[in-house]
Each structure stands twice: as structure tokens, then as C-alpha cells.
Deep mutational scan, measured.
Amino acid sequence: MSIQHFRVALIPFFAAFCLPVFAHPETLVKVKDAEDQLGARVGYIELDLNSGKILESFRPEERFPMMSTFKVLLCGAVLSRVDAGQEQLGRRIHYSQNDLVEYSPVTEKHLTDGMTVRELCSAAITMSDNTAANLLLTTIGGPKELTAFLHNMGDHVTRLDRWEPELNEAIPNDERDTTMPAAMATTLRKLLTGELLTLASRQQLIDWMEADKVAGPLLRSALPAGWFIADKSGAGERGSRGIIAALGPDGKPSRIVVIYTTGSQATMDERNRQIAEIGASLIKHW
């Protein structure tokens, strides 16, 4: 067993022997301040990774656009098919120029040779490549099948209805392509620590998230040296922004954090800054 596999296998073990965790309302004060600064709703939840206990939450059962955070769930569904012998990570998928959609920095470079399922998941999570996500959605049967996968996990809230990039439209009061912070946090925890996926697939999923290259201005910008984070960000229309993450000190994750916002007129930089400040408060009061 590799060191990384050992780390993920012992996530519940280490967490069980940690000192009790206590909620700190100071972080919620910052979440509410972010709402004021952005002029928009902000949803927040913080779960203990081992027990699933909610440590703090704000608007945990209000719907927010998922945006690209759905790509972690998508690759979880792909990995479940791999575990069941219905898919192979090494299978190569070929596609054409007509398949390319807006923001496809990886797939646009491989029109000639195609990409493997493993490479597509890596591109979808680490670079948020939209064509990679659409190609992977095709392998599982489309958005409705991802929703069905989530329902089978016990998540009857999260739903995907459309493809990239239309799913980022974020129309107010439109339930399409949305989740709730509580539902997303619980589902992410199941994917990373539950028995739904094999140990190898859980490790692969967290490795992809740990290698995320496009979430630097968010929670990662607030992390002290030595902290662990595996995350996936999302951005959408109407001032929408979000991030889902597993993080913790001492090089291992111990909490799940989900943050979503929508309806702001603020710039992307300002949305990023507010999420980073929430992260800084979380870490300060850990």
C-alpha cells in the first residue's frame, strides 16, 4: 500500500482519535458579512469528516447552483462504474471539434489522439474542462443518470439537468442544476469515506481534487503551510461562485467545507476574496 493510499485508508482512524471539535460562531459572522459585502445569498456548511456531524452552517438547506462543483460527483459516478466493471479508466475516447464547448483548455489539445477516461476526469476536476465533463456525462448516460446515481446514494436534493455550459445559467428560483450545502457536503463525505467506492477509487477521487489547479484564489489562499486540501470550485452566471473541499491540518483532511453564493453584482475577484476570507476565519478558529 502506498503512503497516499495509507493516508486515505486511515482518515477515519486518525479522526477518531482527534480531540473533540467545537464550532466557532466567528466564522458564521464572516459568512454573514460576506453576504453584506456581496449583496447576495451565501450558503455555508462545515462537517466533521469522521462523524458527519454538522459543526457550523448557514442557509444549509437553500438551493444554490452547483456550477462546476458537480464534476466531482460526476467522476465519482464514473469511478463507481469502474468498480462495477462497467468502465475502464484506460479506455480512450475520441471526439471532434464539434464536441468542444466553451472553456476546454485540455480537451482542445487532444482532438487528434483523444483522451482516456482517467485523463478526462483529471481534466474535468483539476482544470474544470467543460468538454471533458460533457464527454464523461455521455459515458454514464447524461445528466439524468448522474441525478439517479445521487438518488441511489441517498441524495434526493442534488440534481443535474443540463450539460456544460448551460448548467451554469443560475436563474433565480430555478431548481435545475442545483444542490443544497448540506446535501453536497453529505454526498461528498460519502464519496470520500464511505463504502460506495473502493479504496482505490476513493484515493483516485481525492487525488484529482488535491491536484486542483484553478481554485488557488479561494480556500487555498488562506491555508497555512502543512495543511491538506482537496477541492473543486465552480463559477456561473449572475454572480455565482462555489467551492467544495476536504481539508485539515497535519497533512490530512478532517472536515468537509461547502460554500456557495449566487445573485451578486460583485466582480469575480471580490467573490473570490470573500470566500478566501471565510476560509481564513475557519482556519483561525479551527
Rank of each mutant, 00 (worst) to 15 (best):
M1I: 07
S2V: 08
F6K: 11
F6R: 09
V8R: 13
I11A: 11
I11H: 05
I11N: 05
F13I: 10
F14A: 11
A15T: 15
C18I: 01
L19Y: 15
L19P: 10
P20W: 02
F22T: 06
A23P: 08
A23C: 07
H24K: 15
P25N: 09
P25A: 06
L28G: 08
L28M: 12
L28S: 08
K30C: 15
V31Q: 01
V31F: 03
V31T: 06
K32G: 09
D33I: 14
D33H: 15
D33Q: 15
A34D: 02
A34K: 04
Q37H: 12
L38Q: 06
G43M: 00
Y44S: 01
Y44F: 11
Y44V: 07
Y44N: 00
I45R: 03
L47W: 03
L47H: 03
L47E: 06
L47T: 09
N50L: 12
S51K: 09
G52N: 08
K53C: 08
K53T: 14
E56C: 08
E56M: 08
S57M: 13
S57Y: 11
F58G: 04
R59K: 09
R59G: 04
P60Y: 08
P60A: 15
P60N: 10
P60Q: 13
E61K: 13
E61P: 01
E62T: 12
F64A: 01
S68V: 00
S68K: 00
F70R: 02
F70C: 08
K71H: 00
V72F: 03
L73Y: 06
L74I: 07
L74N: 01
C75D: 02
A77T: 08
L79D: 01
L79N: 02
S80C: 09
R81V: 06
V82P: 01
V82K: 06
D83R: 03
G85M: 08
G85N: 11
Q86P: 05
E87T: 08
Q88V: 11
G90R: 10
R91I: 04
R92E: 08
R92M: 10
R92N: 09
H94S: 11
Y95R: 01
Y95S: 02
S96T: 12
S96G: 13
N98F: 15
L100C: 06
V101D: 14
V101P: 02
E102M: 12
Y103G: 06
Y103F: 09
S104T: 06
S104A: 08
V106Y: 08
T107G: 05
T107W: 01
T107K: 01
E108F: 08
E108R: 11
K109D: 10
H110A: 09
T112N: 13
M115C: 07
V117H: 03
R118G: 15
R118V: 10
E119A: 10
E119V: 02
E119H: 09
S122C: 08
S122V: 12
A123R: 01
A124H: 00
A124D: 01
I125F: 02
T126I: 09
T126P: 02
M127H: 08
M127T: 12
S128T: 01
S128Y: 00
D129H: 00
N130W: 00
N130M: 01
T131R: 02
A132T: 02
A132M: 00
A133Q: 00
A133T: 12
N134E: 02
N134S: 04
L135C: 06
L135E: 06
L136D: 00
L137Y: 09
L137S: 05
I140A: 07
I140S: 05
G142H: 04
K144P: 10
T147A: 07
L150C: 11
H151S: 09
M153N: 10
M153S: 13
M153A: 14
D155T: 01
H156W: 11
L160T: 10
D161A: 06
R162Y: 03
W163T: 10
W163Y: 12
E164S: 00
P165F: 05
L167V: 14
L167F: 04
N168Q: 07
N168S: 08
E169L: 13
E169R: 11
E169A: 13
A170S: 12
P172E: 13
D174R: 03
D174I: 03
E175R: 12
R176E: 07
D177G: 03
T178H: 02
T178W: 01
T179S: 09
T179H: 00
M180F: 11
M180V: 14
A183R: 09
A185N: 00
T187M: 08
R189I: 07
L191R: 00
L192R: 01
L192H: 04
L192Y: 06
T193A: 15
L196A: 15
L197M: 09
T198K: 13
T198A: 11
A200V: 10
S201V: 03
S201F: 04
Q203E: 15
Q204K: 10
Q204G: 05
L205Y: 02
I206D: 04
D207T: 12
E210S: 10
E210N: 10
V214C: 06
A215Y: 04
G216I: 07
G216C: 08
L219Q: 04
R220Q: 04
A222K: 15
A222W: 06
L223S: 06
P224E: 06
P224S: 06
A225H: 14
A225D: 14
G226R: 10
G226D: 11
G226T: 12
W227Q: 00
I229M: 08
K232E: 00
K232L: 00
K232T: 01
G234F: 01
G234E: 01
E237N: 14
E237Q: 14
E237H: 12
G239M: 02
G239W: 01
S240R: 02
S240T: 07
R241V: 03
A245Q: 01
A245P: 00
A245Y: 01
L247S: 02
G248Q: 01
D250S: 14
G251D: 11
K252F: 10
K252S: 13
S254K: 14
S254A: 15
S254P: 07
R255C: 03
R255E: 03
R255A: 04
I256D: 00
I256W: 01
I256F: 06
V257W: 02
V257G: 01
V257F: 04
I259D: 00
I259Q: 01
I259S: 01
Y260F: 15
Y260S: 02
Y260Q: 02
T261K: 03
T261D: 01
T262N: 10
T262P: 01
S264K: 05
Q265V: 12
A266E: 12
T267N: 12
T267Y: 07
M268G: 07
D269M: 11
E270Y: 07
N272T: 08
N272H: 04
R273Q: 10
R273L: 13
R273E: 14
A276Y: 10
E277K: 11
E277G: 10
I278T: 03
I278Q: 00
A280V: 13
S281Q: 14
S281N: 12
K284S: 14
H285K: 09
H285F: 15
H285T: 15
W286D: 02
